[in-house]
Design a protein around this nucleic acid. Structure first.
Lengths: 180, 180
DNA sequence: CCGTACCGACCATTTGGTCGGTACGGCCAG
DNA sequence: CTGGCCGTACCGACCAAATGGTCGGTACGG
C-alpha cells in the first residue's frame, strides 16, 4: 500500500503541527506519534530522525501555503497586485476558519532547528521577489505584506484581538493592494 | 549583597533570551545556567522552577519593551499619534542595533508555556487600548501596528530581508502614523 | 517469498528538580 | 572592636522520569 504511506505521512504532518503549536518546539516525538495515532517506532519508520521530521513538515507547510495563495488568485483580475491580493485573501480566509491548521505558527516555533530556518529563509526570499514582481509600488507591497504577516501572527498573542483586527484589516489591506 | 542578587537575575534573564532564541523553547535550564555563568542549582535558587523562570523573563521583556517605547516618546510633538510613532521608532531602533537582545523573538517561542501566554495576551490587550487612545484613525493605527509587528518578526525568517524592509518601511510607517 | 509498514522492548543519555553543604556579608552582644 | 551567629547566594552529587533512537520481530499485500 504505497498510497497508505502518503496518507500516514500526511497524518503525521498534521499531528506535528498541532503538537508543536500546543507544546512548543521541544515536543517529544513520542507525543507527536501518539497524537498521530502511530507508535514512536512507526513515526521513526517514516522519518528517520526528529530533525528530518521537522524539515519535512516545514516543506509541507511552506508548499501548502504557496498552493493556498495560488488558489486564491482571481483570474478575472488583470490589474497589478493580483498575487499580493491573493496573499492577503489566503491569510485572511485561513484566519477566519477557526479550525485551521496553524502551520504558519508552527514554523515560527521550529525556527531553531537549523534545517527549518534555512527552508523558511529561502521561501521568504522567494515571496519577496514574487510579490515585488507584481507591478505595484514596492513600498506599498512591503507594507501590505508586513501587515498581513503581523495579522497572521496575532493569534499567537491573543485570539480575541486577532479576530477584531482581522475584521478591520481585511478590506483595508485589499484596497491597499490595488494599483494607484 | 542584595544588589548582586538583582544583577545575577538580570544576567540570567539575558542568557535565557539568548538561549531560547538559539535553541527553541525546549532549552534545558542547565544550558541556560551555563550560558549565564552559574550552576543549575544557582539558577534554581533564583527561580524555583523552569516555568517560573520563563514567566519572570516574560514580564521582564514586556516591561522592558514598554519602557523602551516610552523612552522614544517625543515630548515636543503635540499632534495625535505620539505613542504609535514612539512604538515604530522603538522597534526600528532596536532592529537597527544588530547586537540587540531579541526579547521579542524569545516571547514568541515561549508562547506554549501557559503562564507566558497569559502575560503576553494581557500585554497585547493593553497595547491595543493604549494605541487606540492615541487620537488617530483606528484603522490606520492597527495597520501601522501590524506592519511594525510584522517587521519586528521578519528577522526570524531572514536577517537579510529584514534589513531591506527596515530601510524601506521606517519612513513610511512614521508618516502613516501622522494625523490626517 | 520478498519488501514494506509498523510494533514493543530496550538502552544510553539528558532532564527538571531535591538535598545537604559551603562561603560570606552584615549585625548585634559583649 | 570583635567574635559568634544568621540569612542569603550558590554549589556538587544525586535521582526518578522522560527522551531520541536501535533492534528484532510480525503482518500482509503483491
Amino acid at each position: 500500500m504505497t498510497r497508505n504511506t502518503e496518507r500516514t505521512r500526511q497524518v503525521i504532518f498534521e499531528a506535528t503541527v498541532r503538537a508543536v503549536v500546543r507544546d512548543g518546539s521541544g515536543v517529544a516525538i513520542g507525543t507527536i506519534a501518539r497524537d498521530a495515532g502511530v507508535s514512536k517506532s512507526g513515526l521513526l519508520h517514516h522519518f528517520p530522525t526528529r530533525e528530518a521530521l521537522f524539515e519535512a513538515v516545514t516543506s509541507d507547510v511552506l508548499d501548502g501555503f504557496r498552493r493556498d495563495v495560488l488558489a486564491h488568485l482571481d483570474l478575472a483580475e488583470n490589474r497589478p497586485g493580483k498575487l499580493l491580493r491573493a496573499y492577503v485573501r489566503a491569510v485572511c480566509d485561513d484566519l477566519e476558519r477557526e479550525e485551521d491548521q496553524p502551520g504558519w505558527e508552527a514554523l515560527a516555533l521550529l525556527r531553531s532547528e537549523p534545517g527549518v530556518a534555512a527552508l523558511v529563509s529561502r521561501d521568504a526570499v522567494r515571496w519577496e521577489t514574487d510579490l515585488a514582481a507584481d507591478g505595484l509600488d514596492p513600498d506599498r507591497v512591503v507594507l501590505v505584506q508586513l501587515a498581513t504577516d503581523g495579522l497572521a501572527a496575532m493569534p499567537l498573542q491573543s485570539e480575541e484581538i486577532a479576530r477584531r483586527y482581522l475584521a478591520r484589516m481585511r478590506p483595508m489591506l485589499l484596497s491597499l493592494a490595488e494599483p494607484l
